[in-house]
Design a protein around this nucleic acid. Structure first.
Length: 222
DNA sequence: GCGACAG
DNA sequence: ATCTTGTCGC
C-alpha cells in the first residue's frame, strides 16, 4: 500500500534536489503589498500514519481571522533531520489549493534557509508556490549563535559556515527564543520585522500559533 | 570516528 | 511530531 509520489525520493536524491533548488531562492525583498498572511503547520494522527496539514489566513494589519483549511492524507515519508520538507510540503500544498486568493505572505513552522543546504521546509514551500515565506522554528537545526538579549523583539544572528542564515529572536520575555530565517523572496531583516509585527503576547506569531492549534486540534481557531 | 539533528 | 498531570505564574 505504499503510495509512491514524485515527492517520495531516496535520501540521496532528496539531498541532490535540495542542492539544485537552493540557488533559486530569492533572498531580497520581493514582496508585494501585504493584505493577508497565512500560517502553516503539520500535525499527525493515528500514531503518525496520517498527516494533517493546517493553514490559517489572517488579515493584515488587523490580524483578524479570515479562513482556515485542513488537509489530511496518508503519511508518505518518515521524519529525517534535514529532509523535513519532503514529509510535510506535499500535504501543505494540498491545503493551499483550497485558498482562493493566495495569501501575500506565509509563515511556516520550521526553518527557512537556516538549513545545512539552505533549503528548509519554509524555503521549499516558498519556491514551489513562488510566494514570500518565513521560517519560524522552535529549536535549532544547524548554526551557532551567541547570547540572546532578554528584551522582547531583540535578536542575535545565527551563523553557519561564515554565513548569517537566520535570527534567534526573543519573541516573548522569559521564554526560549524562536529561530527565524528567510524562506523565499525576502531578507532576514524583513523576515524578523514581520514576525515581530505579528506577535501577540505569546512566543509564536499569530499565523503560526493558530496553524499550530489547528494542526494539533488543540482548540478552535475560527 | 563521534556527536548533532526543524517536526 | 506525539504520549501525558499537575503545577507555577501573569
Amino acid at each position: 500500500m505504499t503510495a509512491l509520489h514524485d515527492w517520495s525520493l531516496t535520501p540521496s536524491a532528496a539531498v541532490a534536489l535540495q542542492r539544485e533548488l537552493a540557488p533559486r531562492l530569492i533572498l531580497e525583498d520581493r514582496i508585494e503589498a501585504v493584505e493577508t498572511i497565512a500560517g502553516v503547520d503539520i500535525g499527525f494522527e493515528a500514531a503518525g500514519e496520517i498527516t494533517r496539514a493546517a493553514v490559517v489566513v489572517l488579515a493584515w494589519p488587523s490580524l483578524e481571522y479570515l479562513e482556515q483549511h485542513v488537509h489530511r492524507e496518508l503519511t508518505r515519508m518518515p521524519y529525517v533531520p534535514g529532509l523535513l520538507s519532503f514529509r510535510e510540503v506535499p500535504a501543505a500544498l494540498a491545503a493551499f489549493d483550497a485558498l482562493q486568493p493566495r495569501p501575500d505572505l506565509i509563515m511556516v513552522d520550521g526553518q527557512g534557509i537556516a538549513h545545512p543546504r539552505r533549503l528548509g521546509v519554509a524555503s521549499h514551500l516558498g519556491l514551489w508556490l513562488d510566494l514570500p515565506t518565513i521560517g519560524i522554528a522552535k529549536s535549532r537545526l544547524c548554526g551557532k549563535h551567541g547570547a540572546v538579549p532578554e528584551a522582547r523583539g531583540e535578536w542575535t544572528p545565527l551563523a553557519h559556515r561564515d554565513e548569517t542564515i537566520g535570527a534567534v529572536l526573543r519573541s516573548r520575555q522569559g521564554v526560549k527564543p524562536v529561530f527565524v530565517s528567510p524562506g523565499h523572496r525576502l531578507s532576514l531583516p524583513t523576515a524578523v520585522d514581520w514576525v515581530v509585527r505579528c506577535l501577540g503576547r505569546t512566543k509564536l506569531p499569530e499565523p503560526t500559533r493558530l496553524a499550530d492549534r489547528l494542526a494539533s486540534r488543540r482548540g478552535r481557531v475560527g
